[in-house]
Nucleic acid binder design. Structure first.
Lengths: 193, 193
DNA sequence: TCCTTCCATTAACAATTGTAAAGAAATGAG
DNA sequence: CTCATTTCTTTACAATTGTTAATGGAAGGA
């Protein structure tokens, strides 16, 4: 149950068995069905999730339609980070895309961990740094690439998601409409012939 | 000389006088002229900068032309972060826009600080978290706003930079061409009449 | 101060994207 | 298994952006 979590943590810090069990005891297992809302826009996110199985989507609600901010898959930490970190009302919503198995830690438990497990500061620092680098890579794709190139890169890196996530959700993640993405798919498919 | 730095640090952690002097001793003051290259694309960034006065721009070099990744102003830490954090060759370049006064800390000195000043982990974690939230806000503007709205927001938040930074540098930061930004400026100016 | 380089705007045209709507196919809940 | 809902694609048109080029003006180095 905690294998994937320990495997991720081990990439950043080395923990003793004792420290591992302190870490484990801070999390609670939770299985949630498809389309289950974990954070609603306007609420304060007070949980952080580690995904054992399934997928989450973080999205904005923009007068009626939903714009994907990020897609979380297995073995990632997920949350509405801005809300969770600042403990302020979330401008994003978080929902499952599939039936999902989560390890849940509350904001309060995390603060306790900073005390009982000093290495936790290093761990979260490195994870925050990595998230920043990731955000910067996505941003760079908006600055440097055409929508067509951005879609092509997405397929290269996350091609499997095309079969797992509705296309209009991917389209909004790539900053385009489903119509435009369909045209791009058409163009790229014809180039390959 | 260290006033602005201490002021920023105080927003995240409380340091004793002794800790403050440890922090100070890790930095070196450096004044650099306009258009001075601090990190060249391909190099490994091994310095982090705190800006006392002046401005830096972080940019990509895309077959000949330069695309702004970020604009750093006074009282901010600046670096080619991906390169600095991973100690890998930088895909970005970092340059001064004006004559600039910097406090410089090396990657090695930073690792020493993590040992001699444990609170430094907390400080850098919180700064990394803040940078992530900032990156996410910028990204959300690409997902949610039209180029016109993105320009309008920029003016609202950083209007003074229009007089301080060449427009084509701002345009590429906003993900558009200088021509398109000029048209948008024209449109918005006419709406106000 | 002079001169070269850089910079912002405008114009015209091509290409791409957004919007709205409709139909066919796939999917999930009961 | 069936039916309502969701999802993907296509079409036509409007709007916006990119591209290239030219001009006038500003700015900075010698």
């Amino acid at each position: 149950m905690f294998d994937a979590l320990h495997h991720l943590v081990a990439q950043f810090v080395t923990l003793s068995d004792r420290e591992k069990s302190i870490l484990e005891s801070a999390f609670v297992f939770k299985q949630v069905p498809r389309k289950f809302p974990l954070v609603k826009h306007g609420q304060i996110a007070n949980e952080l999730y580690f995904i054992n199985k399934g997928m989450l989507r973080l999205f904005y609600e923009n007068d009626g339609d939903e714009i994907t901010a990020y897609l979380f898959r297995e073995n990632l930490f997920a949350s509405s980070y801005d809300s969770f970190l600042r403990q302020a009302p979330s401008i994003q919503s978080l929902e499952t895309l599939e039936e999902t198995d989560l390890l849940v830690i509350t904001h309060q438990k995390m603060n306790e961990l900073y005390e009982t497990l000093p290495k936790f500061n290093i761990l979260t620092r490195k994870i925050a740094e990595q998230r920043f680098i990731n955000a910067q890579q996505i941003l760079s794709s908006f600055l440097l690439d055409s929508p067509e190139a951005r879609y092509a890169k997405f397929v290269e890196q996350n091609g499997d998601l095309l079969l797992r996530v509705p296309h209009h959700i991917i389209a909004s993640y790539l900053g385009m409409t489903p119509v435009s993405m369909s045209r791009i798919r058409n163009r790229l498919a014809q180039q390959k012939r």
